[in-house]
């Protein structure tokens, strides 16, 4: 399963029957040094596009939106304790949440790596 992206600069990839979600390397670079992350509680249900998490850099706060609908099954508290990880490894160790999708069809509508690179390059 390849990595998919949203227009709000989240990425997701499948891991068994759940999806791991984070912010793209492009977004992390644009944000600058991340100093604060707020994650949702495990068990919370989101619809696609809901505000799901908050990430703040020295200068600004940004919302992270749910790229798909579903239930949060796990969150990465390591990035709450060490927000700088989001800059160091945004598409690896600094994942945000894992979601069990309620409407897998939503995933097909997201961009693949090539489409996202074109999108981010022009944004």
């Amino acid at each position: 399963m390849t990595v998919k992206y949203t227009e709000d600069h989240e990425w997701l990839k499948s891991e068994g029957d759940v999806y791991v979600i984070g912010v793209s390397a492009h977004a992390a670079e644009q944000l600058g040094d991340v100093v604060f992350v707020e994650l949702p509680e495990v068990g919370k249900t989101f619809a696609k596009g809901d505000e799901m998490a908050v990430v703040e850099s020295v200068k600004a706060a940004s919302d992270v939106y749910a790229p798909i609908s579903g239930d949060v099954v796990e969150v990465n508290n390591a990035i709450v304790d060490e927000p700088a990880k989001v800059n160091e490894d945004p598409q690896g160790a600094a994942w945000f949440v894992k979601i069990k999708p309620s409407n897998p069809a939503e995933i097909d509508a997201l961009m693949d790596e090539g489409a996202y690179k074109d999108f981010a390059g022009n944004s």
Binding site: G32, D33, V35, S57, V58, K59
Partner: peptide, 12 residues
Amino acid sequence: PVQYPAGVLKEH
């Protein structure tokens, strides 16, 4: 310039 490649945190 709002920041250089080092970034706000390191510059500060």
